[in-house]
């Protein structure tokens, strides 16, 4: 599907690269050397075959194999996404749990409304505001995610904090809301009442009975946000000039570099599928009904 989108729609590839004033013979020659004048089905077969063998094609613009670019970019994006996730999952869940335990009190209102407001804002808007506050006025954090060459692990994290914050804010609202409603439901359930009535300390009830049940739907939500995250990365990486998979796709799309574009999109497709699978697996491990059902 990605391949069709990239190949059928754009029309003449050689023309797109050389511009409208290029000589027709030059366009034909370029088309031939890129192989785009062959029948579509042949191109598609070759592309899939090569991709499965680790050859993602040759970039039209860089005139170099696509694979190293994609792998580098994917690594960079994973770093950024990982930092955002490491920050947001515990804090988001904690926020939701605190809100649920203070249901309808001011603290709950603040967390729910605040979470909802930051979730609906586009990433580049929160990004700009955060850059202004922490990068320009307070000068605490660098405004571009470009660390000096050979920078160590902690320097890299230092440069990535600001870019990960907009992702954090969008995800925080979702995760906190899911954790909150899961908690409310679990707190309201019969097994919680039983646990309280048999005299267990409140702390034990929360930790052993409520949290475990409340967090299942939250985990599913976290996994479904991978798709969102990929879209968010395109914006964030452009804003912070970070060489990730999102900015790679963006640059490839603007430059009509189709092998790069296709390889990038297929790669995030694979990442998405893996993330969904991992979430299903995690869910079944955590949910005793599914885990024990499978063993029987």
């Amino acid at each position: 599907m990605v391949f069709l989108g990239g190949q059928v729609l754009p029309g003449n590839v050689g023309r797109a690269i050389l511009g409208p004033f290029a000589d027709q013979r030059a366009v034909d020659a370029l088309n031939h050397s890129l192989g785009v004048d062959r029948p579509l089905l042949v191109q598609y077969g070759t592309w899939i075959w090569n991709f499965l063998h680790g050859d993602m094609g040759t970039s039209y613009i860089f005139r170099a194999p696509v694979a190293p670019f994609v792998i580098d970019a994917l690594g960079n994006s994973l770093k950024l996404a990982l930092i955002a996730f490491v920050l947001v999952v515990p804090i988001g869940i904690l926020g939701g749990v605190i809100a649920a335990l203070n249901l309808n009190r001011p603290l709950d209102r603040i967390i729910s409304l605040g979470g909802l407001s930051v979730t609906v804002l586009p990433e580049f808007v929160t990004g700009i505001i955060l850059i202004l506050i922490f990068g320009v006025w307070l000068r605490w954090l660098p405004i571009a995610a470009a660390w000096p060459k050979g920078a160590g692990f902690f320097t890299q994290i230092y440069y990535l904090i600001l870019p990960s914050l907009p992702l954090f804010l969008v995800l925080f609202g979702y995760i906190a809301r899911m954790a909150r409603s899961g908690m409310i439901e679990a707190l309201d359930s019969d097994y919680t009442r039983t646990a309280v009535l048999k005299g267990l300390p409140w702390r034990t009830v929360i930790w052993r009975h409520v949290l475990r049940n409340a967090l299942l739907p939250t985990i599913t939500v976290i996994a479904t946000q991978t798709g969102y995250l990929i879209g968010g990365l395109v914006v964030i990486e452009t804003l912070f000039r970070y060489q990730g998979i999102g900015s790679l796709i963006f640059t490839a799309a603007r430059g009509k570099d189709f092998p790069m574009l296709e390889a990038g999109i297929l790669t995030i497709g694979i990442v998405y599928a893996v993330a969904t699978l991992a979430a299903d697996f995690l869910y079944s491990v955590l949910n005793p009904r599914i885990r024990l059902g499978a063993e029987q």
Partner: peptide
Amino acid sequence: MAIPVVIIALLAIVAL
């Protein structure tokens, strides 16, 4: 629905 809007838009805008 699984494809982010930004990605769909990127492809469509490249094409159209």
